[in-house]
Design a protein around this nucleic acid. Structure first.
Lengths: 103, 103
DNA sequence: TTCAATAGTTCAATATAATTGAAATATTGA
DNA sequence: TCAATATTTCAATTATATTGAACTATTGAA
């Protein structure tokens, strides 16, 4: 169960936009952003308590495949960080603007 | 056959992002943007020649319902304009940034 | 070491959305 | 009146999202 992450160059605008177009995923990203570089488990970053685990897991997979987060195993948890540098290198200002506008 | 457009306040970030997350729709929006306020028929703004008419029509519907374009009948054509002012009033800088980054 | 608890993932089923060809609608010009 | 044009609507197919249930991996306690 090791995760596949796209390299920085493989992050696409289409992928980023469609990942962020979902309100639940945007809330996950905001949480990670405000977590300032710290990892968070899926449960910690969950956008709402009543969401099915499998749905949450799927949202994390979409964020991961879009290149927005990086996930590593850490004991029984899977911890994710926002790939802020990669996203800003590829699409400068986009992440911050979207988070600001979604406030 | 008159079109329903959301009012400025009803334009949502989610709607705008998911409308722009499709490469064909992004090309339509780019075309309209570069058209500088001028209307364009569906056929003129078509992102690729081989796309089915019904698919194109559906993309215009999605753009319209997201509040990105305004469409009016003009003879046998349905002409669309980008709702630049409305989008910028609601989400300042977003449209220009996405178009720039997608360049 | 065994076992239960925890955290996520995968699977299969259902529900929702996108794509397309074909048929329908509306407008104009001959 | 009729054919041409531009686009929409419809129905079928295909793709994507959501969920509960079963599965996997890791840890901590008895």
């Amino acid at each position: 169960m090791n995760f596949v992450h796209p390299s920085r160059e493989d992050i696409t605008l289409e992928g980023v936009l469609s990942a962020l177009a979902d309100p639940m995923r945007l809330r996950i990203v905001r949480f990670l952003y405000e977590n300032r570089g710290n990892c968070a488990s899926c449960a910690e970053a969950a956008p709402c308590p009543k969401m099915a685990k499998s749905t949450l897991s799927n949202h994390f997979r979409i964020l991961r495949e879009a290149g927005l987060i990086r996930t590593v195993k850490h004991g029984v948890e899977h911890r994710s960080v926002l790939r802020k540098e990669d996203i800003n290198a590829r699409f400068p200002g986009l992440l911050e603007l979207i988070l600001k506008l979604a406030a």
